[in-house]
């Protein structure tokens, strides 16, 4: 995908955003720093939504956008949208389904679902024409096995009719013939090969990245719809798509901390990991979980919290640790970050 298009879509008119962090957020590079910026930019629900795509180089994208007057660079790698950039954002958003749909792709492997669905459509389409001689798609050994099993189990259930009705209902409910056309061109079947994103882009006069986003969001939408039909013959195609919001190791640290009265030091030695890693795990959990599910008060002593509250500037996201440390000498970076997270999350809840 073109990173420049994504910067317009996820840039902001008033908040300065770091280009690298923004890219890492969409690509789902799970570090405390990236997660923290995602929280700060209100993009946490989008974390990793575009992890299956190549996103290109930040520098080129920024240079291009600055040259076009769509962004201003506040330093070499941070930017804000200009009014013109904001207009462009509004125009691009008009081409897409509601952007919130992208959060489904952060929670589920939508790309994998789409390749399963496209392959299943090909099989059912050829089957409806009683054609056994065709080139099947290649989607990896495990999914290939899954789809074979699915087809054998469901062959009797009038799959051609089911697919036809499902797609007809889904596309009609979009109330947008252009989007429906773009979706249908993602499929292949009997004597039908669909189109690539650049072919559609040329035909529709929109950037290829927008076509890819449209596909992703439409398949996200389709996925949720199919999930809601408990008797759907497509059930088997939905296995193993959910993505956990936290890394496995993070979860282990958190469970140990919640279920015992161990200190972070004790957890580090029990789990044979570094103390800094324990702190990273706890911060990751603090960012990802709702406020009431994370033991903030146990990790952030009341006096420290009060001290931080009394010194905090109005925009806490721009508060540097060095300044805070000067005011509160025995403050640790962990406590400082945790406070920032807590403050941001409380404001979001209001």
């Amino acid at each position: 995908m073109e990173l420049s298009t994504l910067y317009i879509l996820f840039g902001d008119l008033t908040q300065t955003r770091r280009a690298k962090a923004l890219k890492n957020i969409l690509a789902g590079r799970r570090t405390v720093s990236n997660l923290y910026w995602a929280l700060e930019y209100d993009l946490l629900p989008y974390f990793g939504a575009l992890r299956d795509f190549k996103l290109g180089d930040e520098k080129n994208a920024l240079d291009r956008l600055a040259h076009l007057g769509l962004i201003v660079l506040t330093d070499r790698f941070s930017f804000q949208l200009t009014n013109q950039g904001r207009d462009q954002q509004v125009n691009l958003l008009k081409l897409l389904p509601p952007i919130k749909k992208l959060t489904i792709a952060a929670q589920n492997d939508v790309v994998r679902f789409s390749s399963r669905f496209i392959f299943a459509t090909q099989i059912v389409s050829e089957y409806s024409y009683s054609n056994k001689r065709y080139y099947p798609q290649t989607i990896g050994f495990f999914d290939d096995q899954l789809i074979k099993r699915w087809f054998i189990q469901n062959k009797q259930r009038q799959l051609p009719n089911y697919f036809q009705e499902l797609l007809d209902r889904f596309l009609t409910q979009l109330h947008d013939d252009l989007l429906a056309e773009i979706f249908i061109q993602s499929l292949t079947g009997h004597h039908f090969s669909g189109e690539t994103e650049d072919q559609l882009s040329a035909k529709m006069g929109v950037p290829p990245t927008i076509i890819q986003l449209q596909w992703l969001m439409l398949y996200a939408d389709l996925l949720t719809r199919v999930q809601q039909i408990p008797t759907s013959p497509l059930k088997l195609l939905l296995v193993g798509l959910a993505r956990s919001p936290m890394a496995n190791s993070t979860n282990k640290t958190l469970i140990m901390y919640r279920n015992t009265d161990y200190t972070p030091e004790q957890i580090a030695s029990r789990r044979r990991i570094k103390l800094t890693t324990v702190y990273e795990h706890l911060l990751e959990a603090a960012i990802v979980l709702p406020v009431n599910q994370f033991p903030f008060s146990r990790l952030l002593a009341e006096p420290t919290k009060q001290a931080l509250e009394s010194h905090q500037p109005s925009i806490i996201g721009e508060w540097a640790f060095k300044e805070a440390k000067a005011a509160i000498p025995d403050l640790s970076f962990f406590e400082f970050r945790l406070f920032q997270v807590l403050d941001k999350k409380r404001k979001n809840d209001d």
């Binding site: 389409s125 051609p160 697919f163 429906a180 056309e181 249908i184 079947g189 039908f192 090969s193």
Partner: peptide
């Protein structure tokens, strides 16, 4: 050509994608 005239109407494409009995 095997692939019939390209269609732009998604309904027509969908109708042709599955042969219903």
């Amino acid at each position: 050509s095997v692939e019939k005239k390209p269609l732009n109407d998604w309904r027509a494409i969908l109708d042709r994608l599955f042969l219903l009995k």
